[in-house]
């Protein structure tokens, strides 16, 4: 009896508490999780509107309805008629995946606009890259060199590096996958 009380009981209680906590968490996860893959959320629509002035875009999917991913690009959002598209990109800035942007490309493969969906960088420092005037400097860039020639923001070197990497990814993805994106 003493053995049971001293050795078995504690382990049993601990196991019980662990499994209870985990069960409750699984339940809470099922309740709160929303699968947004392949859905045009309000944030994405607002981003499209900001870059092109319309939200008449669709997420590029294959025949089975799965979102087509390119290297470094989470989703491509396309308007096949106007030949415009936007790339949703996560890039590391100072913090992991701190830069979550939409990069819009016009019909000639040049950057038409960049807009942040969320910016998880250090407030006051890294968040300086989330500035309309700064992001406007990238408009018209259509190759890596052009993106690279834009200056970094003082005091936000990691975040500037991140946003430039994101735009470079967008430019390269466009030039390499143009046919696939517009189904030509």
């Amino acid at each position: 009896m003493k053995f049971f009380k001293e050795k078995i009981m504690p382990s049993l209680v601990l196991c019980l508490i662990c499994s209870l906590v985990c069960l409750l968490l699984v339940g809470a996860y099922e309740l709160t999780y929303v699968d947004n893959t392949g859905v045009m959320t309000d944030e994405l629509k607002a981003g499209c509107k900001e870059v092109f002035g319309s939200d008449d875009f669709e997420i590029l999917k294959d025949a089975e309805g799965n979102v087509i991913e390119f290297d470094g690009v989470t989703a491509a959002i396309v308007n096949k008629e106007t030949k415009q598209c936007l790339f949703e990109i996560y890039e590391n800035g100072y913090s992991k995946d701190g830069i979550h942007v939409l990069v819009g490309m016009d019909e000639n493969g040049a950057v038409a606009g960049v807009t942040f969906i969320t910016c998880g960088e250090t407030p006051g420092l890294g968040t300086k890259v989330n500035d309309k005037d700064y992001l406007a400097k990238f408009i018209g860039a259509n190759n890596e060199a052009a993106v690279d020639s834009v200056d970094k923001v003082t005091g936000a070197s990691y975040s500037s590096k991140g946003i430039k990497a994101a735009i470079t990814t967008a430019v390269n993805t466009y030039s390499e996958n143009r046919e696939a994106i517009f189904g030509e």
């Binding site: 662990c18 906590v21 985990c22 968490l25 699984v26 996860y29």
Partner: peptide, 12 residues
């Protein structure tokens, strides 16, 4: 596919 339990598992 329960990576969200990582904090609990790791600290324990």
């Amino acid at each position: 596919e329960i990576t969200y339990l990582k904090t609990v598992a790791f600290i324990l």
